[in-house]
Nucleic acid binder design. Structure first.
Lengths: 286, 286
DNA sequence: CTTATTATG
DNA sequence: CATACTAAG
């Protein structure tokens, strides 16, 4: 009995809908679907998520549309960021925002769901969209580091909860950071760019080494170049596979051990590109 | 020996290019081509007009690309208005702006060319794009009336020049006013809207009655409903022919008498819609 | 509804 | 290069 968890940055859910993303949803209906960069107002998100609920029902994943649990966080900045999380599993709790967010919660960058797996385990699935950052704009880098600090804080809590057979966790989404040379096509030219600077990469290392989260896709793929999840819209980056791996699934050790495989939709013949990111799905035997 | 004069509001020359307007140019190569709403910066206009010069050369209308005369006026407001005029005839003079414009000349709404016809007549061709206006915004209506006042002033000069066998004139373009019930599908509901208010319509009447300009298309078409030149992008206006006649060719009496026929491209099977306006071409035997 | 602009990624 | 926004028509 396995579950599938997908993370997909849509770069505008309405634009992705126009380009056929819903066909992908109908085909895959992952047990947990984590979406980033919805870039849409609440009413648009509500009506699209209702359609997805119908899709899950028609695919036989849930008995009724009300059987799909959803949570989302729209940004206070119109047309920017925005994250949402959907699950056909039993959902015990849903939360939005990070500890450090404070009053400033409506950044549209973090949601959580506690889901119950078919085998009866409870897993916290955290869904995030980090700032892109810009080396020429220190305030934007500060926002990026600030969110990374908050993620570390939450990761510490989740690690402690997971210890000694406790509640396991996933932290998935768009970190906007490639971790190592394997995670970026052009490492040398990008060391001075936001997304591959040493300071940013150190946060990913810290998440793995200090908070004991496992980079599931790297573990499954081994030490190969790639696989990438994002390709710039500029030039022929997608066609030439000049990509970055900036979308991740990090898992606490126990659930990481159950990871059976992953799929990045780019490789598939039926894949129609509806975003500069490709969806990343991991199958867990849990 | 006839000449063709076309007026076409492109609603963005770059968008029109993407949709195949250049094919229309290659097919028709009118002797005088008056364009409105270019909505593009000078460098974009320059390079597109150079392409049109090649098209005229390839069509055998001119000997070399340099044989096409062009004049244009870009608006000081980026991405708005903008008019241009092209001719394969001998051009004696070119001017931009209206008398009333003063310092404020770069409104992108008026150009003139003095062209010499194959029969040796000199004709001033004025090309205009009037403000759309908005009944809820008095300053916008004031701008529209102000331009109409300036047009009347120029029309008075041109009428005087044309008297007793003098230099004839055309005033063509987008007036953003339907003159009579015949010039609009839905007259009653639009009397309170900009474009069909009594005050605006009176300017067209004045141009005809006081300044003796002939509404060439109405003269040729007779008292029928239509033909329209503009259809709203909203709803199914184009499909249902819910249109307005707001693009005109006004002529001094002598040249008006030589008008042999007109064509509005909408009626043609090959017509691909690249704007909310359709091009209007009149053939003059002059 | 469509084309522009702008900011953001 | 693409998706938003806003202004304008």
């Amino acid at each position: 009995m396995t579950i599938t968890v997908t993370t997909a940055n849509l770069n505008g859910i309405r634009a992705a809908e126009r380009k056929g993303f819903e066909k992908w949803v109908q085909k895959h209906t992952p047990d947990v679907l984590c979406l980033q960069e919805l870039r849409a107002p609440q009413d648009a998100i509500d009506s699209i998520f209702e359609q997805y609920a119908e899709d899950y029902k028609n695919a036989g994943k849930i008995a009724q549309p009300e059987g799909l649990s959803t949570i989302d966080q729209v940004s206070v900045f119109k047309g920017r960021a925005g994250v949402g999380e959907l699950s056909s599993l039993e959902v015990l709790d849903k939360r939005v925002g990070l500890p450090g967010d404070g009053e400033d919660a409506d950044t549209g960058r973090w949601t959580e769901m506690d889901v119950k797996t078919p085998q009866g385990y409870v897993i916290t699935v955290c869904n995030l969209y980090n700032h892109a950052g810009n080396m020429d704009d220190p305030t934007k880098m500060e926002q990026k580091y600030h969110m990374l600090d908050a993620i570390m804080e939450r990761a510490a809590q989740l690690r402690d909860e997971a210890a000694h057979g406790g509640k396991q966790s996933l932290i998935v989404g768009d970190f906007n950071i490639a971790h190592t040379d394997l995670d970026i096509k052009d490492a040398t030219t990008n060391e001075t760019h936001s997304g591959f600077s040493p300071k940013e990469r150190a946060y990913i290392t810290k998440l793995i080494d200090e908070y004991e989260f496992v980079d599931v896709v790297r573990d499954l793929a081994g030490d190969i170049q790639g696989p990438y999840t994002w390709w710039s819209n500029r030039g022929r980056a997608f066609e030439n596979n000049v990509g970055w791996r900036i979308d991740y699934q990090f898992a606490t050790p126990e659930i990481a051990q159950t990871a059976r495989g992953f799929e990045i939709s780019r490789a598939k013949a039926w894949y129609a590109r509806w975003s500069d990111h490709a969806p990343l799905t991991v199958t867990y035997d849990v």
